[in-house]
Design a protein around this nucleic acid. Sequence first.
DNA 1: CTTAAAGTATGATATTTGTCATAGATCCTA
DNA 2: TAGGATCTATGACAAATATCATACTTTAAG
Lengths: 235, 235
Amino acid sequence: MSEKTNTPKCATCGSRNKSVFCSLNTEQLTQIDTDKSCEFYQKGEVIFKEGVMARGIFCVNNGKIKLSRMGQSGKEQIVRFATGGDIIGYNSMLSKKPLSATATALDKSAVCFIPAKNFFQMIRDEPNFSLKILELTAKNWENASRLITDMAQKTTKQRLAEMLLWLKETFGLDEDNCIDVQLSREEIANMVGTATEAVIRLLGDLKKQKLIALEGKKIKLLDIHGLVVLADLVD
Amino acid sequence: MSEKTNTPKCATCGSRNKSVFCSLNTEQLTQIDTDKSCEFYQKGEVIFKEGVMARGIFCVNNGKIKLSRMGQSGKEQIVRFATGGDIIGYNSMLSKKPLSATATALDKSAVCFIPAKNFFQMIRDEPNFSLKILELTAKNWENASRLITDMAQKTTKQRLAEMLLWLKETFGLDEDNCIDVQLSREEIANMVGTATEAVIRLLGDLKKQKLIALEGKKIKLLDIHGLVVLADLVD
DNA sequence: CTTAAAGTATGATATTTGTCATAGATCCTA
DNA sequence: TAGGATCTATGACAAATATCATACTTTAAG
């Protein structure tokens, strides 16, 4: 009937249980359903742009999203990813500053928009929701401070190994042990913080070391423990 | 009379207005006063150590604190600073994970300890406090994601210039335009993410470029705009 | 199906940065 | 105030990485 025919309902959202919305009751979910909207994005489409003020938060229904910042002379730096159940854009709401990153779909994605009003209402009315968001922002900081340390101290090869493991954690592996996301060498370079050529060479090295295999664009992880050791993430 | 004779009162704390506690009422401040304790630290003393579970948050009454992580083979990475009015240790409380950084006094400092119970009670009872903390953690993320980008993309010299500006923002300048904190070249290197020798050489370069002057351990900023341009932070 | 465009790959070279060695300066303590 | 320890400084060299040039490969568009 309405223009919202394709809009998924929160109550039946497959991603809800692992999201910050898990503790809301039916009434609260219905309220969100009433006010939210949902958009579908193709690979490469921009969901929101760094620098503008956020007017609400975005909740990923399904798909794969990269969050990146423009650094030196326009070079992209990927700082985070989001998949089903993750929310994005909330930092800008909370800090009352412009969005600090651009969100881009890496794949066909469905993303709901929840207006600021509802977001702040949930924070005020539902201490458990508030705590969930606090937990989320705290974990973000902890990940970020680790990333700062690694960027500052590790070699390019170690960082590459670490990023491959991060991609595995975030997007998982397919039946064939390949990392289940399509990124260009340039995008990988923009995570690692190096030149595209360096990534190509270093992926070649990792292949020679039998840590990975390259099947076209797909990266297959052959020796996860070896990558962990190389990246110097525990042993 | 008691062992808390030297413990400063929240109500008269000079740093309170710029802290997250600014919106609490007298009753709430009194409650904190009852439960908190205060410790005094000399330069170099450790306030808390990375890896252990936090049992409360710390509020800096006055002094200068560095927060650092152990990276590759024990090399320190400084990820944040705290001064009067700042709270530290809360991320670990909120994420329910061990402390992700070590806090060390850079100077004679007074730091209050507020038990977890009080902290969570304030979050539950006082939505404005909750929002303050959310604002803080969101800003932390935004700073961190900028730092990640800069670590990944900028040259060592640019990062050094940026860190000098960061120190200026955090600790201010003394009467003589010198950055008002005493850090060793090694500590600066541990912010910038490079070797001590590189910092020494690059400080020499900045001096030749008349952007700074070195007076013993003190670093005098001669051309702040020049540093901003070099660090590629706007223009 | 053809062609242009984009992405991937590889080599050569220049630059930056890390590492090691050493020496001078400063600070602290006995 | 002498002496050791730590911090700062500088040179020489090695290693890592960026940059530029070029070719190959895959993808997308007409």
